[in-house]
Simulated scan of single mutants.
Amino acid sequence: MKFYTLLIVIILSIASCTQENKQVTFTGEIINPTSDMVWLSVNDSTLSTNLDDSNKFEFKIDITEANKYRFDHGGYTYIFLKPSSILHLTLDTKDFDKSITYNGSALEENEYLKKRLLLKESLEENRFKIPNMSENEFQSTIDSTLGKWEKTLLELKNIDSKEYSNFKKAELEEINKINSLVTDYYKSMINLRPGNDAIDIKVLDKNGREYSLKDFKNKVVCIDVWASWCSACLKEMSYYEKLTEKFKNQNIELIAISVDDKEEIWRKLLKERDIHGQQFWAKGGSQSDFFKNYQLNDLPVYIIIDKNCKIVNSRASRPSESLEEEIVAAMDN
């Protein structure tokens, strides 16, 4: 009887240790918090907890395999957790990505995820430059972002272990997916590269008169493409109006084209915001030829066309940034 009792105790102890080894402790400290909550999610599951009086938090969760988890507070990043790991994160919301530091286990993997996020953001920052890149420039951009991302992943010392198999598969699938999307986008913009003939447009003014590029013949044309649902578009309007006034009576036309699906929405916003200048509507909005021909899926978009109706830049800078300099350069050529 004593033997069986001892055997049961041993079995329970082993089970207890196994369960304990699966538990992850994830703690952290938030500098300049934006709320009193933090969130941790993977797949379709989300956990949350409160910051204490010192702006610190703690999660204790049971996991069976290594995986990346999304952490949210004033922004988001990914953390890597594996069975029995202990991880501490520190971040400052005022300099989110660059301020992140880790202590504990799986440091190599978490440094990889930090680098992964920065590489992804670097590619995102190039989205307006990509349409104007040569093939060599485009490939160099892919190599320095997605290529570096994949290389860093495959250099992780445990990446080929069974414990990491699902993580590795998911990461490679995401890299390949982004690569396909960016490459398809680059190829779709081939007709909008600098020096190509600008594709003609057909738009309506407030009086219902139809305009095309021929109506701006022998002038540089700058087009602000916007929609009422685009908050960034509305934010840039005041900057664009200042540029319109600044270049008044010069050999350039600064026009604005709405791609709202409904004409009445466009007219209503013009009235409510007392918007001036040369305002046009692309009939049909997102279904218009203008929208499709110029690949207008990410607003706002600023397009510069020279006096010979050649594209200077189909993805120019915003008015709040360096659009003015690009306009001046186009007028000088």
Rank of each mutant, 00 (worst) to 15 (best):
residue 42 V to H: 14
residue 32 N to A: 13
residue 111 E to L: 13
residue 57 F to T: 01
residue 143 D to L: 12
residue 114 K to N: 12
residue 32 N to H: 15
residue 268 K to F: 06
residue 131 P to W: 00
residue 220 V to K: 00
residue 203 V to N: 00
residue 309 C to G: 07
residue 136 N to A: 15
residue 127 R to W: 10
residue 187 K to A: 11
residue 284 G to C: 08
residue 87 L to W: 00
residue 285 G to S: 04
residue 199 I to S: 03
residue 63 I to Q: 09
residue 303 I to K: 01
residue 85 S to T: 07
residue 255 I to E: 00
residue 67 N to E: 13
residue 31 I to T: 12
residue 260 D to P: 03
residue 326 E to A: 06
residue 7 L to V: 10
residue 314 S to K: 04
residue 129 K to H: 10
residue 249 N to W: 02
residue 30 I to F: 00
residue 151 K to G: 02
residue 144 S to G: 02
residue 221 V to Q: 01
residue 26 F to Q: 01
residue 310 K to F: 04
residue 222 C to S: 11
residue 206 K to W: 03
residue 97 D to Q: 14
residue 147 G to M: 02
residue 122 S to H: 07
residue 32 N to T: 11
residue 332 D to G: 04
residue 201 I to F: 03
residue 137 E to L: 05
residue 315 R to Q: 08
residue 216 F to L: 11
residue 196 N to L: 11
residue 76 Y to F: 12
residue 33 P to K: 06
residue 47 L to I: 08
residue 2 K to D: 14
residue 40 L to S: 00
residue 45 S to C: 06
residue 44 D to M: 10
residue 114 K to I: 08
residue 184 D to M: 09
residue 146 L to V: 08
residue 164 Y to R: 07
residue 117 L to H: 13
residue 312 V to T: 07
residue 245 E to V: 12
residue 53 D to G: 12
residue 178 I to V: 13
residue 118 L to C: 04
residue 273 R to Y: 08
residue 253 E to N: 15
residue 138 F to M: 05
residue 22 K to L: 11
residue 45 S to T: 15
residue 319 P to E: 02
residue 318 R to D: 06
residue 285 G to W: 01
residue 97 D to A: 12
residue 62 D to G: 11
residue 213 L to R: 08
residue 6 L to P: 02
residue 105 S to R: 07
residue 308 N to W: 08
residue 274 D to N: 15
residue 109 E to P: 03
residue 254 L to W: 00
residue 294 Y to D: 02
residue 18 T to Q: 15
residue 25 T to K: 12
residue 261 D to F: 09
residue 251 N to R: 10
residue 104 G to I: 01
residue 293 N to L: 06
residue 62 D to Q: 13
residue 262 K to H: 11
residue 109 E to G: 03
residue 271 K to V: 11
residue 281 W to M: 09
residue 99 S to D: 09
residue 21 N to K: 14
residue 125 E to L: 15
residue 249 N to R: 08
residue 196 N to P: 05
residue 37 M to P: 02
residue 101 T to E: 08
residue 72 D to N: 10
residue 183 T to Q: 09
residue 128 F to E: 10
residue 191 N to A: 14
residue 280 F to P: 00
residue 258 S to P: 06
residue 154 L to S: 09
residue 219 K to L: 10
residue 223 I to H: 00
residue 68 K to W: 10
residue 282 A to N: 07
residue 220 V to G: 01
residue 116 R to C: 06
residue 101 T to S: 11
residue 316 A to R: 05
residue 43 N to W: 09
residue 55 N to D: 09
residue 71 F to V: 10
residue 12 L to D: 05
residue 313 N to W: 02
residue 284 G to Y: 07
residue 276 H to V: 13
residue 135 E to D: 14
residue 192 L to R: 05
residue 288 S to V: 01
residue 36 D to Q: 15
residue 204 L to D: 03
residue 191 N to Q: 13
residue 297 N to C: 04
residue 243 L to P: 05
residue 268 K to Y: 08
residue 234 L to D: 04
residue 330 A to Q: 02
residue 229 W to D: 07
